[in-house]
Design a binder for these strands. Structure first.
Length: 871
RNA sequence: GCCGGGAUGGCGAAAUUGGCAGACGCAGCGGACUUAAAAUCCGCAGGUCCGAAAGGACUGUGGGGGUUCGAUUCCCCCUCCCGGCACCA
């Protein structure tokens, strides 16, 4: 019994009052000492978390696994949301390493953007300096937290080595007509002093400044033709079954595909026509219900419709009213309640011709018609549209029934429906030669008729708009375009990339782009004619950076291309992407677009960037989102200093399943700290680095105490492995490990009595450490070493589950009478149904409940439960 | 209005395929160790009622109904909370 003297007697090992920290044999877990020791070691070995080169892999049988967490904006310091996000990814990466995969687990910095400019203005620090300093700080935090990133692939989007490829992609987009310049109404955030894409406007406010109303401005802007892929972006969602349904739904809503028909209504000039009419004498209307067109009793125009402008120009009275409508609409839009606007309209005095029946209908302008959807004009069918019905009632417009609801029997007389009847299951009436057609059939026939007669056609409309990427800001990727007086818009030749963002720029939020005030940047030479040219001073939306950065990780130091096609093909798609749901539309839709674009460039072969997406819940405190304003922010640095990185990470995984919001409680992390200490103390007390080999005796060879440990160990291996492979409920993984540790503590007396063989105990401890390794890497490494293991824990094989060893020899079967729990019987695990029922019926308590009654039914669910039904 | 997600002890949560509701942890209570405290270890613990106790009865997963021997789990109806979309023609 060589280990006898090593067993600690509690009194000998208990730390005394003072100066206990440095005492030899101290059992208290000093997380700071252990964690800083390992952080330094890991720091020294850059290759530790490096993904293996793909060239080594064409022959190797190792499977790849690309796990990615959304890269952070370097705001200055990590917050708890980051810690949670990265703890999930890190646990997964470590688990996959231990399971023998070639893991790619990179990290980078989404480092262009407005906060750097604000900081520059406030602290007089250049954006570059501010950003790089923040990156250094956050990188140090990540290292201290022990995240296993392949830093050799670090991507920093604000550096020319990266953003030159944004410019390169822009040129490719431009060549293919996918980047274009257009004057249009754009969203303008006064606080950002720049425009925003539609996706970046939330409830009429800026996505970064939720209290700042977005204004509309007319500006020349660069757009990316995301709508070219609208259909594929939509249909591709069906195949993304590794994505949360919620995100897919959000994207579907955002794309907003709608099938319908365009129909031209001609303005009628028969009366009051002064020789030349308003620009565009036809009014194209978009409708999803062309089958109801015989019920159209007016045409409604958006107040900002160009024809309205012309009509108003001829009619000052109308103009005042239209201005009023525009104001109402704008106000409602800004307040974010355009949906609740009080319907209000004005008759223009003009009429338009319904091309299907040549009927003259009045043309109105209404505040609920939106210029930026469809054509900005509708045909109003009060009988079959709720909004039109409401409007018609208010202004006394005609309501004409043209659809009758279809009943089961087509020949049966149908009662007049309550109006408005908006159902699709009907047939046409009062519709000339289309009478008796079913709605869907009528839509087809009538669309075709319109197309044949050149006054309309079937069409598809999207809510999705092209992506406005111009930003009148300094800290972003310069758009590589030139304006030459002679040659117009000219692209910067590829060989002249990158267009370097100048460093010495006075950043202000006033006026246009700060770059305009840098003559050496603005003044350039036209590559076509050699004459003087003006450089584009807008920079790119920072969502361009994050749309393709994950490809760059596969080949981050390439200076001839964004990345090598073969290498990207090996790694893509990303097996698991993890981040907050706030990017469900913005980042994730742009990324999907970019992937399709790169595929069509022939750079990649995958259609989608991400196989599986996981959106983790928020970290909240006291029931509310953490924010500086509320003063409920928990700082990761403070948690690491007080409890250690392992505790902070483990708690963020333990407190709730990862997809739910996590309510941070300081007392909760203390419990985790206690648990880590418990694990540490057990191993310190029981480590036998010099143990002989564990020969794996069969269960019957072990004393009951040891056998109980073995059973629990294998049950734990199964639970932890299953949760990694299926749903990711790390909280239950950790609970399972806690239970194992509790069993080990319960066995300490048996261990002291030598009922647990030393080699077996060593094996159990090894497995315990392996199970803990993905969640608490510092403690796991420390204990691994303490157990005398020399190999790299990171790549040590994940414990293997053995069903035979996990099996219970005896089962406690609950016995119900009429569905109510009355007793329990202990039976051998392999007991037959007869035996179990016999025992159950023989049970004293059960007998008391069935006495004098008739047994109707006996139910036995093997291994689970007995239910005796009596009456 | 439409589409998701959710509601379980004092709190965070668990119950993975319809089978012991509350694992694990926090907070709490009791005990051990200590001169004492901290730390640590062990134990108790949904609620109500009966009982001195051991123990027992009833009840309990937002509310109501249903299916079933049996429902946190499946079906129908309703309430509340969170997120997204919304005169989208």
């Amino acid at each position: 019994m060589p280990h006898e003297e090593k067993i600690a007697t509690p009194s000998a090992e208990r730390p005394s009052t003072e100066r206990d920290a440095a005492r030899p044999g101290d059992e208290r877990y000093d997380a700071q000492r252990v964690e800083t020791k390992w952080a330094e070691r890991w720091q020294r070995d850059a290759s530790l978390y490096a993904a293996e080169a793909t060239s080594d892999h064409t022959k190797a049988a190792k499977k790849k696994y690309y796990v990615l967490e959304m890269l952070p904006y370097p705001s200055g310091a990590l917050h708890m949301g980051h810690v949670r996000n990265y703890s999930i990814g890190d646990a997964l990466a470590r688990y996959m390493w231990m399971n023998g995969y070639n893991v790619l687990h990179p990290m980078g910095w989404d480092s262009f953007g407005l906060p750097a400019e604000n900081a520059a203005i406030q602290n007089n620090t250049p954006p570059r300096e501010w950003t790089l300093r923040n990156i250094a700080n956050m990188k140090a935090q990540m290292k201290r937290l022990g995240f296993a990133y392949d830093w050799s692939r670090e991507v920093t989007t604000c550096l020319p080595e990266y953003y030159r490829w944004n410019q390169w992609f822009f040129l490719k987009l431009f060549e293919r007509g996918l980047a274009y310049r257009k004057k249009s109404k754009v969203n303008w955030c006064p606080k950002c002093a720049t425009v925003l894409a539609n996706e970046q406007v939330v409830n009429g406010c800026c996505w970064r400044h939720e209290d700042t109303l977005v204004e509309q401005r007319e500006l020349e802007q660069w757009f990316v033709r995301t709508t070219k892929y609208a259909d594929e972006l939509l249909s591709g969602l069906d195949k993304l079954d590794g994505w949360p349904e919620k995100v897919r739904t959000m994207q579907r809503n955002w794309i907003g595909r709608s099938e319908g028909t365009l129909v031209d209504f001609k303005l009628d000039y028969a009366e009051n026509h002064k020789g030349f009419g308003p620009a565009g004498s036809t009014i194209p209307v978009f409708t999803t219900r062309v089958d109801t067109i015989f019920g159209a009793t007016s045409v409604q125009l958006a107040p900002e419709h160009p024809i309205v402008k012309d009509l108003a120009a001829e009619n000052p009275g109308l103009r005042a009213q239209v201005d009023q409508l525009i104001a109402e609409q704008r106000k409602a839009k800004e307040a974010g309640d355009i949906g609740e606007i009080e319907k209000h309209g004005v008759f223009t005095g003009r009429y338009a011709i319904n091309p299907f029946n040549s009927e003259r209908v009045p043309v109105w302008v209404a505040n609920y018609i939106l210029m930026d959807y469809g054509t900005g004009a509708i045909m109003s069918v009060p009988a079959h549209d709720e909004r039109d019905y409401e409007f018609a009632k208010k202004y006394g417009l005609e309501i004409r029934l043209v659809i009758l609801p279809m009943s089961g029997d087509p020949d049966e007389t149908v009662a007049e429906p309550a109006l408005p009847f908006v159902g699709h299951d009907g047939m046409l009436v009062n519709s000339g030669r289309y009478n008796r057609l079913a709605c869907d059939e009528a839509i087809r026939v009538m669309s075709a008729y319109a197309e044949e007669n050149k006054f309309g056609k079937a069409t598809v409309t999207y809510r999705l708009k092209d992506w406005g990427i111009s930003r009148q800001r300094y800290w972003g990727t310069p758009i590589p375009m030139l304006y030459c007086e002679k040659d117009g818009i000219v692209a910067v030749p590829e060989k002249d990339l990158p267009v370097i963002l100048p460093e010495k720029v006075r950043v202000t939020l006033a006026g246009g782009s700060p770059l305009e005030s840098v003559p050496e940047f603005v003044n350039a030479t036209c590559p076509k004619c050699g004459g003087p040219a003006r450089r584009e001073t807008d920079t790119m939306d920072t969502f361009v950076d994050s749309s393709w950065y994950f490809y760059r990780y596969t080949d981050a130091r390439n200076d001839r291309a964004p990345f090598d096609a073969k290498t990207a093909q090996y790694w893509f798609p990303i097996d698991q992407y993890i981040g907050g749901v706030e990017h469900a539309i913005l980042h994730l839709i742009y990324s999907r677009f970019w992937t399709k674009f790169m595929r069509d460039l022939g750079m990649i072969t995958n259609d989608e960037p991400v196989e599986r997406l996981f959106t983790q819940g928020m970290v909240i405190k006291d029931g509310r989102k953490m924010s500086k304003n509320l003063g409920n922010v928990v700082s990761p640095d403070e948690m690491v200093a007080r409890y250690g990185a392992d505790a902070a990470r483990l708690y963020s995984l333990f407190a709730a399943p990862p997809d739910r919001d996590l309510d941070w409680q300081d007392s909760g992390i203390e419990g985790i700290q206690r648990f880590l200490g418990r694990v540490y103390r057990f191993v310190v007390r029981n480590a036998r680095p010099d143990h002989p080999e564990w020969g794996k005796p069969s269960p019957s060879d072990l004393a009951p105490a040891a056998r109980a440990i073995q059973r629990k160990l294998h049950q734990t291996i199964k639970r932890v492995s299953d949760d990694f492979q299926g749903r990711w409920h790390f909280n239950t993984c950790i609970s399972a490990i806690m239970e194992l540790v509790n069993v080990l503590y319960g066995a300490e007396e048996a261990i002291a009595r030598n009922e647990v063989p030393a080699p077996f105990l060593a094996d159990v401890q090894r497995n315990l450490v392996l199970l803990l390794a993905p969640f608490a890497p510092y403690l796991a490494h420390e204990l691994w070493e303490m157990l005398g293991e020399k190999g790299n824990l990171l790549k040590a094989p994940w414990p293997k589950f053995d069903a035979e060893l996990a099996k219970e020899e005896e089962l406690e079967i609950p016995v119900q009478v009429n569905g109510k729990l009355r007793s329990r019987v202990v039976v051998p695990a392999d007991a037959t149904e007869e035996t179990v029922l016999e025992r159950a019926l023989a049970d004293e308590k059960v007998r008391a409940f069935i006495a004098g009654k008739q047994i109707v039914k006996k139910i036995y669910v093997p291994g689970k439960l007995v239910n005796i039904v009596v009456k």
